[in-house]
Amino acid sequence: MQIIQPHYHAIARTAQDYERMAMSGVVAVAEPAFWAGFDRLYPETFIDYFRQISEFEPTRAAQYGIRHFCWVAVNPKEAENPVLTREVLKHFPEFFAKPTVLGVGETGLHKSTKNEIESLEAHVDLAMKHGQLVLIHTPHLADKAHGTKKVLEVLAGMKVDPERIWIDHVEEQTIRPVLEAGYWAGFTLYPITKCSPKRAVDMLEKYGTERILVNSSADWGPSDPFLLQECVIEYRRRGHSLQDAIEVFHNNPCRFLGQNPKFDIKPIRIESAEVAHA
């Protein structure tokens, strides 16, 4: 089965990930800009990072037949340095022009501070002015419900197109308001700290598959890109058809990411397999 991994921090992973992802059906990954594990001090550090994910990383993925796309952002954890944020934002348009950059992300909130909110607004505003897609990170664990509510409040006060905004890391307590407001919702599968494959399938069964993106992130911390494949198996073993699985794990990423014409992978329909597995 063909799978798209819409949230994947490739630079933190080895080529073995790419090889195994290719062997398990992954045809494309999208890499949002991420926190490096420490707060960066210089705009140039971000510029080189954006060059890495927009120029070098596609070549590494291509060795395994995987298409690589990316996003640019100053991570919410680094928003406490507004001068740095503003300086980095000035460089976004030059990256929007690159052939694999899909938009602005992951911006969002971490502790929902004033500086973080201003940074989120600046990121979203810039994305909207340049017709870019937006990927929004919502906080972890105890901060999630409050932070997600705050993200929705910020967006409600701005002129945005909800269909072009993906709010990521939703869980059972935050999915409903995100979908009801018209945004795309992302389930991020982590070994213990975010959503699990089984809980993700529970939410797919409860809320349906429309405007849902399932991803397993994978970064330099405890994480596992193959939780996405585990989720596919869980979905299938509960009796959902192969085509339904393709809709969630391949076609939905095509639908959202494909709003940017640079993402040219199209939804697929497997007529003969559907008959065989119905």
């Binding site: 059972e172 070994p191 213990i192 700290t193 699990s196 089984k198 809980r199 529970d202």
Partner: peptide
């Protein structure tokens, strides 16, 4: 703590299911 939180959530999700 986090590991136990995860395990409890999995059990709660199974009960909901």
């Amino acid at each position: 703590f986090l590991e136990s939180r995860h395990q409890i959530l999995e059990i709660a999700a199974m009960m909901d299911r």
